[in-house]
Design a protein around this nucleic acid. Structure first.
Lengths: 141, 141
DNA sequence: CTTGACCTTAAAGTTAACTCTAAGGTTTAT
DNA sequence: ATAAACCTTAGAGTTAACTTTAAGGTCAAG
């Protein structure tokens, strides 16, 4: 099949597929006489695998690693694959924690304000964002 | 004070302060004879306000809005400020939900795999990422 | 035989929020 | 008087993962 068909079947756009090729994630099995990329059903499986990985939150770099393992299972062990997943879990957990922290701060901010049509002259949100007060939780990285 | 001093006092680097100026967030009150930016204590307050906003998760665009309100409180109401905070809360909550969803998927993935030094031949992670199976939660946007 | 839908490449644009570089001017301390 | 530590600008580079553009080649239908 040609790239447009692969795009439709895999849910990855043609230009993204070309980009992935450039990034070394997937190659066309061959080229037609007119230099069109030609893909096989196997390529479609690979494309779908990539799509799944992306939907699962893996970066292109991680997808690359997973593809390497997938392409040569005999020379890898479960540990290799699981390690990638676990690292990702740690990443996501850490991001969630950060965002939870942020959410707390935001709630404090919002809750402090009446939200009415009173002049913002004494708005607690603005006051809280002024640096003189305390309660700075250091959301830096 | 000069930009380096403001940078130290506010926790925003000099180049970032210049960038913020370019983005319309903060201006030097004046320029010295040698064209150096000169900042006042008021400017420092503004810089700290911006820092607080950023640490609280607001985008530069949102910070701009907050600065507008802050600069002209009489012509804004609490509602205006609170709206920004509440919108941000919704954004963050939505992102957290997405990440939680992702985390679930990742846990399923990880839990399915023994993680041992067995060949990856039958690794459940790879199997799960193959597109033929079900359980696709559509983590697309 | 031409229109429209496809395909090709290389390169630039997008987003956000910076950071860095180059090439130079100023200030301060010794 | 000279070196270090500051300051200036404009513009380019960074990151990730694409998307868009330009300029062109191919193919099937009517």
């Amino acid at each position: 099949m040609k790239i447009g068909q692969l795009a439709k079947s895999s849910g990855i756009s043609s230009s993204t597929l070309r980009y992935y090729e450039q990034q070394g994630l997937i190659q066309a099995s061959s080229r037609s006489g007119s230099n069109y990329r030609q893909y096989t059903e196997q390529d479609l499986s690979t494309a779908k695998f990539i799509k799944r990985c992306r939907d699962t939150g893996f970066s292109l770099e991680e997808v690359s690693e997973l593809l390497s393992i997938r392409a040569d299972k005999a020379n890898y062990v479960c540990e290799d694959a699981k390690q990638i997943a676990e690292q990702k879990i740690l990443d996501v957990e850490s991001k969630i924690q950060q965002m939870q922290q942020l959410l707390n701060t935001l709630h404090q901010l919002s809750d402090a304000c009446c939200g009415g049509v009173e002049s913002a002259e004494f708005c607690r949100i603005l006051d809280t964002l002024e640096a003189d007060s305390s309660a700075n939780k250091e959301n830096n990285q």
